[in-house]
Amino acid sequence: MARAVTTPRKALNTAIAWTIGILIFFPILWTVLTSFKTEAEAIANPPVFLFFDWTLENYGVVQERSNYMRFLWNSVIIAGGSTILGIIIAVPAAWSMAFVPSKRTKDILLWMLSTKMLPAVGVLYPIYLLCIELGVLDNRYALVVILMLINLPIIVWMLYTYFREIPGEILEAARMDGASLKDELLYVLTPMAVPGIASTLLLNFILAWNEAFWTLNLTSVDAAPLTAFIASYSSPEGLFFAKLSAASTMAIAPILILGWFSQKQLVRGLTFGAVK
């Protein structure tokens, strides 16, 4: 048990922690605030913090000028599709490894992990070439598959660590109770694993949403998701701070909210269960 601390001590902790917390969060806060300013206010010196004429104009302009919805939709398809596809492939695999481990299970898991560590740039051209040869450059379904493959090791790992916490006796009980493999997966394992599957889903959605190597290099127009949309602000529109902020806010807001829900699972997912 943590011991009780004196109130002044706690107040000091609180003050320091909040100061640092706000400092770290500030770039995001500032971006969100700026998105509601006019362009003049956005670059005003001294900067205005809260007392400006709040406006939604920038959001309208961004949508109108760049067809934001299309990029958003691409992001949703790519991140959502790759995650769901990955889960569908990974659940049976993780089940096998968690409940019917063999001597090779550990090697397979580690090998899967090693594919995740392959530097993307090392296979940039081959993938690019394959996309051209298959005629799927700038195609969102190609990206769905590629991001699924990139995140598949993480998905398998996360599910594996969650499944392993489910006592094998319960599945044996189900088997004794007459459940077939399908019943076992459907009525026993899946309901018990829902929290684990949900957090796996969430974290991988976030990772896919923010992926910015393949999405930048394999898309141009049709399949470009929000990462590419933002990168296109690099210049010269980037000098319009308010619009840049509005675009940025739209790109990160959904994921920030999801991310806050998944922070606990984040540790597990990204350390492959090595830190809990």
């Binding site: 006592p167 006796e169 319960i170 009980a173 309901p191 018990m192």
Partner: peptide
């Protein structure tokens, strides 16, 4: 079973 193996959900 030793752990009872009840279905928690």
């Amino acid at each position: 079973f030793q752990s009872y193996a009840l279905y928690p959900h």
